[in-house]
């Protein structure tokens, strides 16, 4: 009995080491930041649009949509842009842009220069819609299902691998449902 007490430190340490090992070999994507809004309805918003008219959360209903927060001042957004173009033009996915804390003329120039993948682009000048989405920074991408619920959030640029391996299968599945 008394000897067991002396085993406690070892047992605690092995538990800790085992857990570290599990974390190490779990192979989870280090960039995954689970959103507090997963499987919850996307927040309501009603933003002026870059073209004309407005972009509101109502327009998300009924169709699977990808919402991308971007800004002209954000370097990773440039890196990500070709992927968004591919999504919209080749994969025929509905992509909506939200220009986060960006001057509309800068956003326009950005899209004119790199190509415009967005069906509509909302202007979130004060970043309030970003906060409603629980945004960490730009770029950030949300997948919204037909019922208007957030199904996935990607923090940072969408990479080709991420698109092929995770995003496209998810989008196809959502479209079929």
């Amino acid at each position: 009995m008394r000897r067991l007490v002396f085993l406690v430190p070892l047992a605690l340490f092995l538990g800790l080491a085992g857990w570290f090992a599990a974390a190490l070999f779990s192979g989870r994507d280090p960039r995954e930041l689970p959103s507090a809004l997963i499987d919850k309805p996307a927040p309501d918003f009603d933003l002026p649009s870059l073209a004309e008219g407005r972009l509101s959360s109502q327009s998300l209903r009924g169709q699977v949509t990808v919402v991308n927060f971007f800004a002209s001042w954000c370097a990773p957004c440039r890196v990500e842009h070709p992927i968004l173009l591919r999504m919209a033009r080749q994969e025929k996915i509905r992509v909506i842009g939200i220009a986060y804390k960006d001057r509309p003329e800068d956003s326009r120039r950005f899209l004119a220069e790199l190509g415009d993948p967005f069906l509509t682009t909302g202007i979130d000048r004060d970043g309030r819609t970003g906060i409603d989405f629980g945004l960490y920074g730009v770029p950030e991408t949300y997948v919204i299902d037909k019922q208007g619920r957030i199904r996935k959030r990607i923090v940072g640029p969408v990479t080709p691998a991420l698109l092929d391996r995770e995003l496209l299968p998810l989008l196809r599945a959502l479209e079929r449902s």
Partner: peptide
């Protein structure tokens, strides 16, 4: 740590 704690559990009592 594991090694020294094992030694500890063995010899310290």
């Amino acid at each position: 740590i594991g090694g020294s704690f094992t030694l500890y559990a063995w010899r310290a009592p």
